[in-house]
Simulated assay, not measured.
Amino acid sequence: MLRTVAALADGLTTELHTDLAALPAFNPDDDRDPLPGAVAGLRTRIHAAGAVLFCTPEYAGALPGAFKNLLDWTVGDAEPDSIHAKPVGWLNVSGPAAPSGGADAHDSLAKVMRYVGANVVEAACLRLPLTRDAVGTDGLITDREARAGALAALRALRDAAG
C-alpha cells in the first residue's frame, strides 16, 4: 500500500522506510546515545518528515510485533522534530476475513499515537480491507476504492503539515 501511495503522490515527496527488520528489539535501556544505527536512521527520517503515514495489517488481533517494535522506538525520542505533535495517519489494510476487520490494530495504533502526543489526522486514518487479488503483479494496489482512500489520506496529511 505504501508503494502505491508513493506512486499516487503527485507533487509530494515521499520516503518509504524499508528497514523494519533491521530494528533491534526495543529495550528502554538502549534508548540513549549512541542509538543503534537502524533506530537512528528511523528517527532521522521521522525528524525530516513533514508528516508520517503508517500502514499496517492486523495480526492475531493486534499490531504485528515488528511494527509495534518500530513504534516503541519512537516513544522516547525527545528531539524537537520527533513524532510528538507531528501530523500522522495510517492505513490499515487488514483483509476482510480478519475477525475484527482490522479494528483492533486500528485502535491499538490510535492509542500508541495519542500516547506519544502525535497530531493524529483523523481524515488520514483509514481502514481499507484488501484481498490478495487487489495487488497487481507490480506490487501496487489495483482496487480503485483503496487507491482513492489512500490518496485522500495523503492529501489530508499534506494539508495538516501545512
Score class of each variant (00 low, 15 high):
1 M>V: 07
1 M>H: 05
4 T>E: 00
7 A>Y: 00
7 A>K: 02
8 L>K: 00
9 A>L: 01
12 L>D: 10
17 H>E: 11
17 H>S: 07
17 H>C: 09
18 T>G: 11
19 D>A: 15
25 A>G: 11
27 N>C: 08
28 P>Q: 07
28 P>H: 10
31 D>R: 08
31 D>Q: 07
33 D>Y: 14
35 L>E: 13
37 G>I: 05
45 R>L: 15
51 A>T: 05
55 C>S: 13
60 A>P: 07
61 G>L: 02
64 P>Y: 01
64 P>Q: 02
65 G>Q: 06
65 G>K: 05
66 A>K: 13
77 D>I: 00
78 A>S: 14
81 D>C: 13
81 D>L: 14
81 D>E: 15
82 S>W: 10
83 I>S: 07
84 H>Y: 13
86 K>I: 10
87 P>T: 04
87 P>C: 07
95 G>N: 03
96 P>M: 01
96 P>C: 00
97 A>L: 10
98 A>W: 01
99 P>L: 07
99 P>I: 06
101 G>M: 05
102 G>E: 03
102 G>L: 05
105 A>W: 04
105 A>Y: 04
106 H>Q: 12
111 K>W: 10
111 K>Q: 14
113 M>Y: 09
114 R>Q: 15
114 R>D: 15
116 V>W: 03
117 G>I: 03
118 A>T: 02
118 A>P: 03
119 N>T: 11
123 A>K: 14
126 L>G: 02
126 L>M: 13
126 L>T: 02
127 R>W: 12
131 T>Q: 13
131 T>D: 14
133 D>V: 03
133 D>N: 04
135 V>A: 10
141 I>A: 00
142 T>S: 10
143 D>S: 04
145 E>R: 14
148 A>I: 02
154 L>E: 06
155 R>W: 12
158 R>V: 12
159 D>F: 08
160 A>W: 02
160 A>T: 05
162 G>I: 09
